[in-house]
Design a protein around this nucleic acid. Sequence first.
RNA 1: GGACUAGUAGCUCAACUGGAUAGAGCACCUGACUACGGAUCAGGAGGUUGGGGGUUCGACUCCUCUCUAGUUCACCA
Length: 593
Amino acid sequence: MQRIDQIIKSVAVEAVRDNWSVNIQEGQVQIQKTRREFEGDFTVVVFPLLRHSKCSPEETGKAMGQYMVDHSDMLSGYNVIKGFLNMVVSQQYWKELLDGDLRGPHYGFTPVDAGSPNVMIEFSSPNTNKPLHLGHIRNNLLGYSVSKIMEASGNHVTKVNLVNDRGIHICKSMLVWQSEGNGETPETAGMKGDHLVGKYYVQFDQIYKSQIEAQVNEGVIRREAEAKAPVLEKAREMLRKWEADDPEVRRLWEKMNSWVYDGFEETYKRLGVSFDKTYYESETYKLGKEIVLKGLEEGVFYKKEDGSVWANLEDEGLDHKILLRADGTSVYMTQELGTAHQRYDEYGFDSHIYVVGNEQNYHFQVLAIVLKKMGYMWADKLFHLSYGMVELPEGKMKSREGTVVDADDLMDEMESTAKMMSEELGKLEDHNEEEKDIIYRQVGMGALKYFILKVDPKKNMTFDPGESVDFNGNTGPFIQYTYARIRSVIRKGEGIPKSIGDIQMNVKEVSLIRMMHEYPEIINEASRTLNPSLVANFLYDLAKEFNQFYHDYSILSADNQEQVGLRLLIVEAIGQIVESGMDLLGIEVPERM
RNA sequence: GGACUAGUAGCUCAACUGGAUAGAGCACCUGACUACGGAUCAGGAGGUUGGGGGUUCGACUCCUCUCUAGUUCACCA
């Protein structure tokens, strides 16, 4: 069914042509939703058309409005206020939409087929030396939701994770475990593996700091003490052994990493995210070298006296960037060049999205420029979905100072809050414990996910663990509650014939259908701008509108059977959209709560 | 110092990318249940959109200057 805003645009073009003999493009017709306080569904802004009509805004609007109503069955009325032409869409159009597209299983989705664009999206990308925290949660939820949304808008999506499993950070944990751990394992400690490894990482930092202090007290300059702390030397030594494939170090490394992976797996599962493929940096970090050396050969990069390789980015207004260290080892950028190249070879993606925090904006800017300098035109297909930090009311999260919000703890807290709320209301008494736990989990996670995703990704957000995660108002549970209510009505209305009938719909009913009509555009816009918050806020508005309707009108005991049937159709359609929209955010909706 | 991003109600966030009187939630007052689920609904109060200039029919949105905060500026990933 053709979208009504499209119909209005094309009729408006005809109106301008037939009234003033001027041909304009549909893109020149400005159309928007009519504000609540005025009558109508869509508003044509007439100001830009005045130079064609050469008369007042009111006259122009009236001439167009009359023409449009006369020339389209889908438009039933108009009014003009201060240069805004408000068009009323016919009830017939809304009813056909309700009885047609809105009843389909995937309203608003664009099917994916062999010709669909190939999108690769990288997110999560954890280090293996410590557990995930709140910042990672934002990353994971964003990445997962964006991949769902892009899929819904007709892209073939591949989700990938890049695990940073090598480097000095993991050696630090390994070192302390070796000396202090007494063979402790996740089983003997009764801890998740990532937490256990994180514990030793923190211990390293404590030892490191005390060694520095001891040196400083003996009169050593702080800088020097920091660089030469014995424990850090040992960690470096371990990294060298790792690079040299020392069997003992490698075994330990594999063992401790596997603990971490088990821990991450659990956290991912709980968060409800998954990947199609996982890359490990230990397997890819050497790939970039070849590319850099090739670039050096071609004269795109240059070599300094000490042997290090650099790119000159001055013509782009940037500085010089190191690509290979003097000793020939790779840096972060080297590795990144390699993986990008490898992925393009393997998948030939039409676009590649990196979900990475905004502190790495510069890094990704440089990545694209360097690739382009080397003549890889697909550098234009790389996008950095840069998101803001999650701050706590006291300021930033700092792992060393212990002001992080641990991901697992937070999820525990959300679920127990959900449990408390629910027990107070006592609506689940006929459920067994297992069923209840599922619902607590859905609601607790729903609150957390919605809270994170409703905010525009690029903005920094503050998170108050004590207060700000609410279950009332603009929250996940509010939408879940609305869904549970809808399901309840539908269960009770089982067996009642549903049809559009030929009764007149009231403003709320029309308003609901009109909102649902926006859903496909919301999905596409969210996909285009990589912004799940559009979906989140849309669902909230829809839920709110439904609750008002629900309050003002009775569904099952409406005046007559025809009206009951119509309202059930509307309610059913809303339920489907809420369910599918929440799924795009990675949020489950419960039948009861 | 350069670059990038942001600044909207006491707090957390919107504003369809230049359109009508800048909207929600929380918190604070006031109301609404013999109900299809009150995790709801209605109302009140709360704003010089950081500040100054400019562009035009029209600016939270664009330009310019400025203030504030965050990130980053190279051999950590």
